[in-house]
Amino acid sequence: MTSLVLALLLSAEPPTTQEVLAKYDAAMAPATFKGVAQMTAHRDDGTTRAYKMTFLKGSDDKSRVWFHEPAAVRGQEMLRNGENFWVYMPNLKRALRLASRDNFQGGDFNNADVLRANYARDYEGTVKEDPKKPDQWLVELKAKSADSAYDSIKLWVTKEPLGLPVHGEYFTSSGKMLRSADFTEMKDFGNGLKRPAKITMRNEIATQRFSEMVWDSVDITAPAGDGKFGLSDLGH
């Protein structure tokens, strides 16, 4: 019986791209949440740099990050509001505008990976089977605008539950692969949110480099008032 269900499941018609991306976004970038994560950047020489930060996501267009570690960046903050990114530098006592494709703290994520995760809005594409991975859908995405993190993405997501990412490949407009990612360590964050807790982003240009983002907590019930997403609130 189980094998019959599995067979039916695996041979089902692909869901629409929007269905998959809505599920992906709900898991990986819930509408609002507060979370604590640690990013570890592995560099060419084998050494690492670790960053600890708190995220607050206010809506699809707003997010903010407070950096706690290491001491050299403590007090730095990042803010995204729509297409606009700023970084507050405590040693300048002011905020600077950023490009969305700037590297996130010099690691292998870029700002948009972290602060602009809204695939349903930013990308369009197709969903199809991958014969090598029968339990996953292959989602091929093209960016709708130049502000998106990447020009095209290949994303492998689970069929059941729908939309949880397993692997991603991220490309430039010329088709060159910039990054690849693996999504591992499924974790129950509470309030019905179960998703991979660890993202390993590999730099496909400098292949010795990769960065890991491990989420310690994601609270989708935390308040995220609009007052936290104005430029004038940075540094306070």
């Binding site: 509001n81 300048l92 006592k93």
Partner: peptide, 24 residues
């Protein structure tokens, strides 16, 4: 190297801050 000047001024500030508007 603008990062080397950390000092401010003795002041009082009132600020009304919103997402896309602020008055100080």
């Amino acid at each position: 190297d603008p990062t080397f000047q950390r000092a401010g001024a003795w002041l009082a500030e009132a600020e009304w801050g919103f997402e896309k508007v602020a008055l100080s």
